[in-house]
Amino acid sequence: MANTPWRRLVGGGERRWAALGLAVVVALWEVGHRVYGDFVLPSPLSTLAALGRIAASGDLWPAVVTTARDALSGFLGATLVGTLLGGIAGRSMPVRAMLQPIATMLIGVPAIAWVVLSLLWFGGSGLAATFSVSVAAGPVVFAAATQGTRTVDGGLRTMARAFRVPLGAMVADVYLPHVLSYLLPALGTVLAMSWKVAVMAELLSGAGGIGDGLAAARAEVDTAKTMAWVIVVVVLLLVVDRLVIEPVRRHFETWRRGLPGEAA
């Protein structure tokens, strides 16, 4: 093992490469700025400065809270309804046959169309964003839950039946752990999608949130401010993914073989 002091200084293997990738992006950003100028691509530094100005004006925190509320409430709704219906559809052929085409149809509708429709239906209230997110994300969760429930090992189901295990334990111990291996990757994707759709809905509704901030920045033709808001969304997404999705994933997958720190 070449454990040179230099390596120790920079940190562990994976994190080091991640940092390098990020550094490359920032460097390219700076190069782009030098080539195209302030209006097209403000420098990383002036973007940070714009972010600082937004924070100082007191706009940042309320916007973050509003967007988080919109995205997460929609995400939660999509997860609950999608998982429940998907679970039922996975066990019942008629329900599956009925719901699957509807889900496919809903996936086919562009998210922006949901935004426009929900603005017409709910007006400028926060409900428009929540609804758009739910209806855009729900079918994806549904599809994953259906597939997960369908592929539960028949032998394990027979075994549980043989031991006359009650329904609660059947769902919690036989179905859920297996379904989660389908559901968790889908939830990661859907969470990212939730932020995007929420911001989109806010941009059009003007009812506050990061999207509203973006709309204002666009009206002011302030590219640095626009990019600052983009950074806010990305950071929010990363924080929630690391803080919520990742620990959940880790918790439910301890039983899998070949995890780090395990021999076999």
Partner: peptide, 11 residues
């Protein structure tokens, strides 16, 4: 029952 396959919950 003891089945031919052990049929243990992997998790």
């Amino acid at each position: 029952y003891v089945f031919q396959d052990p049929l243990l919950l992997p998790w």
